[in-house]
Design a protein around this nucleic acid. Sequence first.
DNA 1: GACTGGCACTCGCTACAGTCGAGTGCCAAA
DNA 2: TTTGGCACTCGACTGTAGCGAGTGCCAGTC
Lengths: 339, 339
Amino acid sequence: MTLDDRKLDVLRAIVEDYVATQEPVGSKALVERHQLGVSPATVRNDMAVLEEEGYIRQPHTSAGRVPTDRGYRLFVDRLSTVKPLSPAERRAIERFLVGAVDLDDVVHRTVRLLAQITRQVAVVQYPSLARSTVRHLELVPISTTRVMVVMIANTGRVEQRQVELPTPLDETQVTTLRRLTNEKLCGSKLSDTPPLVQALVDEAPVELRAATVALSTTLLETLVERHEERVALAGTANLTRGGLLDFQGSLRPILEALEEEVILLKLIGEVEPITRVRIGDENEIDNLRATSIVSAGYGPGVTIVGGLGVLGPTRMDYPGTIATVRAVARYVGEMLAQN
Amino acid sequence: MTLDDRKLDVLRAIVEDYVATQEPVGSKALVERHQLGVSPATVRNDMAVLEEEGYIRQPHTSAGRVPTDRGYRLFVDRLSTVKPLSPAERRAIERFLVGAVDLDDVVHRTVRLLAQITRQVAVVQYPSLARSTVRHLELVPISTTRVMVVMIANTGRVEQRQVELPTPLDETQVTTLRRLTNEKLCGSKLSDTPPLVQALVDEAPVELRAATVALSTTLLETLVERHEERVALAGTANLTRGGLLDFQGSLRPILEALEEEVILLKLIGEVEPITRVRIGDENEIDNLRATSIVSAGYGPGVTIVGGLGVLGPTRMDYPGTIATVRAVARYVGEMLAQN
DNA sequence: GACTGGCACTCGCTACAGTCGAGTGCCAAA
DNA sequence: TTTGGCACTCGACTGTAGCGAGTGCCAGTC
């Protein structure tokens, strides 16, 4: 059976009320708070249908209704309109992000901003190395048999590793090596480097061959293979909002999941600029079956270099959260483009 | 009145039992579990005295006794002997720390290790810049009017900032500037740099004067004044251990405090190599009055470059935690010394 | 045929009373 | 100084009863 308009209105009203009050909503309260134009009895009939279809459920026989994950999904897909940000929020975002001195700074400010506006847990991925291009590779001699290689990416990320050299190099040899690697790798995407690095080794003059091998091994191992993603997290205290009602009193599994970078990356590592919503059970991580995640990709212009998002109880203000995440992602992208 | 030995034994037994069971301990249970050689009635008399002196208290009239902060303090100062680490723990520490490729890696491994062994929240401060010396300053041209300055410290920390130049510089000028700054600043402690930076500006050739000013302003502002401390955190999920009994059910204030770097630094930013214990109310941070913190300084050799520590309920295994924190601090120091 | 008012029913929540038992303080005797 | 005994306290648990929000169903109405 297909749901008629009024039933959808009822579902929308239930979601809105439940999100606002955190209490199961009954037929009488519903007609009082919304202009549905029908009596409680009618609403009850509609509710029975909605329950049969799996969009709402009763915690106990004599209680009101609560949306199911499926109900939230329908709400998000068809019943809600994206809430425009208030001018105050808009200004807050702008003010928060200007004056960042540093990529680290941008990321930290962003994650705190997101947590503060949405009042939920915020996660921001650093621009992915795999989607960055090399702007410069610097070799800094630490001792005669050790150099620190510093890679600066176009996204502002800076990564460094120490490389142990098989043979000592003098100053001019380091300079040559620096020139060669930069000529070869500058401007290329990090994910495309393996063949370039190979070429670098092949073309290196004999006396630098061994050093080049050591250098390229480190580069490939640390930057490409274990491709070094990073994330920032803020707002975990917001999980305690709403007392023990959300998450049936146990933050444990959620806090555990949030400590795993791999999991966070899976949640917010977006490839597309689309705002994505994962509701409760739709989530792949078992520990997070009671939460919803709203995430979006960001990047300068149209390319996406990383993801960011927000995690909260399934009972969340989806329209508001979606709007905020989307807006913040856009602003961060602009921030990066200026760089 | 001064406490005789048996009363101290009773206090020690109460602390140990309470830490183990998390339940108020009564006189009968106490004589059953410990060889005190006296009857419950005698223990009750001792307990009355200990309570009068403020070392223990009764949650309610008909309940057993629970140590007060003051009781824990006495226990830590005079009644506990540092528990030697088990060989397994020792091995775990060693295995965990070898193979770290990077300062970031060392810090992250350390903080996870600490959280895992102590089963509490762990905090590790990155080596403080204020106590590091400059190993190398690298200038990387981003455009003709922009350079990225990368500072490499002897502790392995690497910090970078972009500097906007008032006038364009060519390749050779950048090289000169690099040479000048390195000659001036290499090997000096970061906290001692202000006069050196001033000298650098004064001695710079005219055509580099403006650039030097811009560079030194950035250096002073970001590295010295806001002296850029960083911390890593792990194990927040351990706060939920022991159900809602610790922290009277509200993790909120604690999670909030843990999000503030400033607070974390106040807690574990040690100057001395001593293991320090702060118990409950002794803490300056209001949000953390229900927690205890065990912290220690670490560094290569005898110098201290940073702090690390552990945070948990006042009801914690002090001897074990102290031993672990101390051992981890020492191993991290050795790690850094090898570098 | 859709909607509505009425009604019986369910069941979680709260209040209250009663019982149990761990633990205490005190006292007199050893 | 220690100990056994005893009366007392009070939290935890159990069972009962009443309340009320909310439901499903049905007969009547538009």
